[in-house]
Computed example of a mutant assay.
Amino acid sequence: MKSVLFRLYLQLMRLLGHFVAIKDKQVVILNGAGRSGSNGYLFYKYLQEKHPEYQVTLVEPWPSSHLPWSSWKKIAAAKYVVTTHQPFKIHASQVNVQLWHGFPLKRMGIMASNTRHKDNQRNAKLWHKNADLIASSSDLYETLMSSCVSVEAQKYQKTGFPRLDYLKTSPITRKQLLQDLFGLADDQAKIGIYMPTFRYELEDDNIMKEIGQGNFFASDDFEIEALNEALKKRHQYLIVKLHPYEMKLFSASEIEYSNLAFLNNDYLFKNDHDLYELLANTDFLMTDFSSIYFDYLELDRPIIFMANHLQEYDKTRGLLFGPYKQVVPGPVVYSQADFVKQLDELDKPMYQERRHYWHDLTNQVQNKNYCDLLFEAMTKLTR
């Protein structure tokens, strides 16, 4: 019922928006990706800095049924509407720039096991109708996206993604990051970040219960004190960045350990940072099925894959390619004990070779300024 009402709300706003005239050199960015590698937010920062001749408005969170009319007028007046999720525009003459929010590793749309046929048909029509330019990084990206949302090949342009421009340099130093998150200094520090995917869709109350109790690995052998000691012994620090929904399940402020820190959106919003702007200060990534690892390949640093819920995830939603152990460019672990064993030897030549292989396969626009390429492609459509 809620989804039906929301669609009616959008239709009403579109109708009202048709009475607002479009203005050249106005851009609106509908950002649904928060601050965790948001193409929308980082492209917004780029436009503000590099193209002050354009008036750019950031609308977030998106989608939302609580936007003021002033925001809707901005959306209706924009020549360019940039989206990170489903394509959207009000006027047919507007240009929708679709940035999406991650390289498709997980099944979605018509390829997913947990979607409805009617919804998939509706979404495919929206992509066909509204998307004018879809940012791409490779042939593989285009193949995977089109398999999920049935989008036409001619809509893609290989510009790369804005978030990748912000990976290799950070607005804060490594020393400052350690101080902000761990409250200490350590010249020998090696910093890792753990970013799992959204595990709520596994539809397993036991997993959510474990996470709510602080077991962020959701592993049977989780012992946070032992994990902290293992990290401390090696001068290693682990930043834990969970999905906002999972962070709400427990109070991270009540979990205080010297070598573990929880990164929440409050810190990122307060300091006007996106997560990707901090990754240059990290030495390794740990994830499960999150597509962040494709982007992390830009840094050519070790990646560890936690697959303790692989079977459940594959059954509930599924992955677009596999077998999982053969396609991920790093060691696969299934428990805290497995993870700790990897800490003494984070990188091996075989994993370096795999990273380079997957980087070349997933990014055919290397060593370029992705924001510049996107801006050129976007504005070229209206010349």
Rank of each mutant, 00 (worst) to 15 (best):
V4R: 11
R7K: 14
L12Q: 07
L16I: 13
G17I: 06
K23R: 13
I29M: 05
N39I: 02
F43A: 07
Y46T: 11
Y46D: 08
Q48Y: 01
Q48C: 13
E49Y: 05
E49C: 04
E49G: 00
H51C: 10
Y54G: 10
Q55Y: 04
V56F: 06
P61Q: 09
L67F: 02
W69Y: 11
K73D: 02
A76Q: 09
A77N: 08
A78D: 09
V82C: 11
T84H: 11
P87M: 08
P87L: 09
H91A: 08
A92E: 15
H101L: 07
H101W: 07
K106Y: 03
K106S: 02
K106N: 02
R107N: 13
I110N: 01
I110W: 01
K118L: 14
R122H: 10
L133A: 07
I134R: 04
D139S: 09
S146L: 07
V151L: 00
T169F: 03
S170R: 06
I172Q: 00
R174G: 06
Q176L: 14
L177Y: 04
A185C: 02
Q188E: 12
G192T: 04
M208C: 11
G212R: 07
G212Q: 07
A218E: 10
I224M: 13
E229K: 13
L231M: 07
K232A: 14
Y237A: 02
Y237K: 04
Y237R: 05
Y245G: 01
K248E: 15
S253R: 12
E254F: 00
E256A: 12
Y257H: 15
N259E: 06
F262C: 01
N271E: 11
L275K: 03
E277R: 09
L279E: 07
N281W: 10
T282V: 13
F284N: 05
F289H: 12
S290D: 05
S291D: 02
L310Y: 14
D314A: 12
T316E: 14
L319E: 00
P323V: 04
V327K: 09
Y334L: 09
L343D: 06
L343M: 10
M350V: 15
R354L: 15
R355S: 07
Y357F: 15
W358R: 03
D360E: 14
T362I: 10
N363H: 14
N363E: 01
N363D: 11
Q366C: 01
T382C: 12
T382Q: 12
